[in-house]
């Protein structure tokens, strides 16, 4: 049954009317028009739909919207905060990391979760943390470079 659900998304409060079991991705994309979260497999195994829940990366295709209530949701649209563009997004453009781009927002969110915990991960840590993210266009090498570049940008900024 549909009900009114209050969500905290990208630093703002939103109220939507949906069945609490609705996968979060549909609420983000269709109710809140946040189209940057992409649908891939719908089964939690490709990483396309990754968003942050209290800073942790989760797959929004298999997370019911009710589980996001009372927590902070960050989507790609809110990742850059006031600056607009997050260092990761800048780094992906700088490295021209991607082809069709469909996987990228999920990858960026996954990488944001990692850098949030560990701003200077090793290459092995990046590879293993992002192993859930599939990129059929095969842009892994560039994605890796972009994440390393972002990590450097963030550490420099922090100094």
């Amino acid at each position: 049954m549909t009900q009114s659900i209050e969500l905290n998304i990208n630093g703002a409060r939103s109220v939507v009317t949906a069945d609490p079991g609705t996968p979060l991705i549909y609420v983000l994309r269709n109710d809140l028009k946040l189209k940057g979260t992409r649908f891939g497999c719908g089964a939690g195994v490709c990483g396309c739909c990754t968003v942050l829940l209290d800073g942790r990366g989760i797959q929004s295709c298999n997370t019911p919207v009710s589980a996001a209530q009372g927590r902070e949701i960050t989507t790609i649209e809110g990742l850059g905060g006031k600056a607009g563009t997050h260092p990761l997004q800048q780094a992906f453009v700088d490295e021209q990391a991607g082809q069709c781009g469909y996987c990228l927002t999920g990858v960026v969110m996954g990488a944001a979760a990692l850098l949030g915990r560990n701003p200077s991960p090793t290459e092995a840590e990046i590879r293993s943390e992002l192993d859930i993210h599939l990129c059929r266009c095969g842009a892994y090498d560039r994605i890796l470079r972009a994440i390393r570049r972002a990590s450097e940008m963030i550490s420099k900024r922090g100094e």
Partner: peptide
């Protein structure tokens, strides 16, 4: 640089999936 990449990493609704 590619013209389409900035929008794609910003999460703009560029795909047919995103039409409204």
């Amino acid at each position: 640089p590619r013209l389409d990449l900035p929008d794609k990493v910003a999460g703009a609704g560029v795909y047919v999936h995103d039409l409204e």
